[in-house]
Design a protein around this nucleic acid. Structure first.
Length: 666
DNA sequence: GGGGTTCAAGTTTTT
DNA sequence: CTTGAACCCC
């Protein structure tokens, strides 16, 4: 497809830093891929010198495919990754700069929280109730995450602390970093923080990376946080050889430390910054675009922007009220079945988006009942399953013996008579020696501290692990045998409700083992496999099902950057969208941007659904329409099923829809 | 230390 | 309706 004049100037401009303000559906991915092709052809750059970063794995995958398609074979070696993967790559090259050793682990959010709970428990000295501790762990992680994203050290955090709570958090931040180092581990934020620091501190590193990375493209720039911004600056240096593409109206990650004002900061830090605006929308019918524009006009803006479309009016946006959540799932599933037949569309052209993952549950059941193939993105991911986490923890412990998070997870799973008393003794010992838990087992005081029998069991566990560590050259079989040897499968079966569940859970372990085996066969080192898995959102699927035809079920967050012919946005209700936790104007504004992201995913048709009542925590409650509904332009929408709809019309429509469905199923 | 029962609280979004 | 934590007894 042809590029418009603004897109062309964004693609061709290579003389300095460039900011592309790209409205929804304005072809920004096309600009990025075309620019990569241009840099290869006209810019005299080799594919290895071009780096593109995104925020989500999904976006990276998508972009990588498009780059490969548009640039041909050289596109393959263009580096397309998430910020975190790029950070990992930098860190891996020189772990010592961050005080790490080569086999370091990545702690995920659950690992980080459980470590923080331990630290807080020690900080408060003993008796704290578990619920309070859990909340405090969360709060501490979010605070620490904010500090890290702003590149603040524990010292700086302590110096800025105003309240007692801040001081506690700052002290815990220090402990937390120390424990991570003892464990030879990093958390997600460290994958940005450590590389940024390393590049700040070493001009040689900087020079090395700046020579290697000749051009940087950043997608969804409005979602960058302080650490990511610093990384961009350090990696591109004086040259400012970058193109960043963003849209302040689609900033939906403030809760994760994103700073949409980085759009403004960029103009301040780079006086030579060139700005290109993309305002023509190629995606949506104008009914959809006008609705989205009207909605977002209720928000404050960093940049003025007028999105327009030549795609013709299309059908009005439908706002469908249904009785309850079951009715909603039912309605969406059957409409998808009907529309697909009527429009001769593929399943893959339909998407259902929602605010939170649990909303997909009822819909899944309906889709299954109607035999509709679907793909659920995110949600309770594979890696959140406890059996997967257990197996991974064993693997981590083999690769990185100092990984305390992993040790605590599996030392008594299955049971080895190593309970709370033994563990707190071991932690005391480790604390005194400043060592990891496993190393503390080597302490000469072990038997004195814990008694002879507990000490014997700990030593046996240590030796048992060491034995399996010796077989790491074939990690998947080693892990399989390890799990068999300790009776994990039987234990898992005992933990499961019934034999079906037991089979399912063991099959998840098998899936993990298969994934490890696959990667191991391509020559990946065990430590690298683990880190890569930690950053994955799902297991890599077989290559041969590259283009499965499935209805997409996504959260609003996961939907960003994607487009679909026909979109349903579920649960347009107060409490869901905006979410009940969002009270401040700023939070509501972010929810509005989320809704905006949802609306602008649709190309041809858009349906918003809401219920009159919904099951919530076991009881049925009346719901209220989202405040955002009133912000949509009345002349672009049509209401169905609202209370004031004439009874006979509602019945007639219900009948027609039922008939249509019957015809299809016959 | 382990295992069972009872009871309460409650997930927003992702790396 | 779930999940996890407290509690009690072995």
């Amino acid at each position: 497809m042809e590029l418009n004049p603004q897109q062309i100037s964004a693609v061709r401009y290579m003389d300095g830093p460039l900011l592309v303000l790209a409205g929804a559906g304005s072809g920004k991915t096309r600009v990025i891929t075309a620019k990569i092709a241009h840099l290869l052809r006209e810019g005299g750059l080799a594919p290895e010198q071009i780096f593109a970063v995104t925020f989500t794995n999904r976006a990276a995958r998508e972009m990588s495919e498009r780059v490969a398609a548009s640039a041909g074979r050289p596109g393959r070696s263009v580096s397309v990754s998430t910020f975190h993967r790029l950070g990992l790559r930098i860190l891996k090259e020189n772990p010592a700069a961050a005080g790490l050793r080569p086999g370091f682990s990545i702690f995920d959010t659950a690992d980080a929280e459980s470590l923080l709970r331990e630290l807080l428990r020690m900080h408060w000295g003993g008796a704290v109730d578990a619920a309070a501790l859990r909340d405090a762990g969360r709060a501490a992680l979010s605070m620490i995450s904010n500090w890290k994203n702003a590149l603040l050290t524990p010292d700086q955090a302590a110096a800025n602390a105003r309240s007692t709570l801040d001081r506690t958090h700052a002290a815990v931040y220090r402990d937390y970093q120390n424990h991570l180092l003892v464990s030879n581990a990093v958390d997600f934020d460290d994958l940005l923080l450590h590389p940024a620091r390393a590049l700040q501190q070493s001009s040689e590193r900087r020079a090395l990376w700046q020579a290697r990375l000749r051009y940087l493209l950043v997608d969804e720039y409005q979602d960058t946080n302080g650490a990511q911004y610093e990384l961009i600056r350090l990696l591109t240096g004086e040259r400012g050889a970058f193109t960043v593409v963003g849209d302040d109206d689609q900033s939906i990650y403030a809760w994760r430390g994103a700073r949409p004002d980085n759009l403004v900061t960029l103009a301040r830090d780079y006086p030579s910054l060139t700005v290109v605006k993309l305002e023509q929308n190629y995606r949506s019918r104008s009914s959809i675009l006008k609705s989205a524009n009207a909605l977002i006009s209720h928000n404050p803006h960093l940049f003025a922007k007028r999105l327009w479309s030549e795609r013709g009016p299309g059908d009005p946006v439908r706002i469908v009220t249904v009785a309850d959540d079951e009715g909603e799932a039912d309605r969406i599933a059957s409409e998808i079945v009907q529309q697909r037949a009527r429009l001769r569309a593929r399943w893959g052209e339909f998407a259902v988006v929602y605010r939170s993952n649990h909303q997909a549950r009822g819909l899944e059941l309906r889709l299954q009942a109607l035999r509709v193939p679907y793909r659920l993105s995110g949600g309770n991911s594979f890696f959140d399953r406890s059996e997967v986490r257990d197996a991974l923890a064993y693997f981590r412990l083999l690769v990185n013996p100092t990984d305390d998070g992993a040790l605590l997870r599996v030392i008594n799973v299955p049971r080895r008579q190593l309970g709370a008393a033994t563990l707190s003794g071991l932690q005391r010992l480790a604390g005194r020696r400043g060592s990891s838990l496993l190393d503390a087992i080597d302490s000469s005081d072990l038997a004195v501290e814990l008694g002879g029998s507990a000490a014997r069991r700990l030593l046996a566990f240590r030796d048992w692990l060491a034995h399996w560590r010796g077989r790491l050259d074939r990690p998947a079989p080693a892990l399989r045998d390890l799990l068999a040897d300790c009776g994990y499968e039987n234990w898992l079966a005992g933990e499961s409700r019934d034999s079906d569940q037991a089979r399912l859970r063991w099959s998840n372990v098998e899936l993990l083992l298969a994934a490890i085996e696959r990667r191991s066969l391509t020559g990946e080192e065990p430590a690298e496999i683990l880190r890569s898995l930690a950053l994955d959102d799902a297991l890599d699927r077989d290559e041969d099902e590259a283009d499965p035809d499935e209805v997409q079920l996504l959260t609003l967050h996961a939907a960003k950057g994607l487009e679909f012919a026909h979109v349903w946005l579920m649960g347009f209700e107060e409490g869901l969208l905006p979410h009940r936790n969002c009270v401040s104007d700023e939070q509501v504004a972010e929810e509005r941007r989320l809704a905006y992201v949802g609306l602008t995913r649709a190309m041809e048709t858009l349906t918003l659904t809401l219920t009159r009542q919904r099951r919530f925590r076991g009881e049925t409650r009346r719901t209220e329409p989202s405040r955002f509904l009133a912000e949509l332009p009345a002349d672009q929408v049509v209401w169905e099923g609202r209370d004031d709809e004439p009874e006979e019309r509602r019945e007639a429509r219900a009948r027609a829809s039922l008939d249509a469905l019957k015809n299809l199923l016959d």
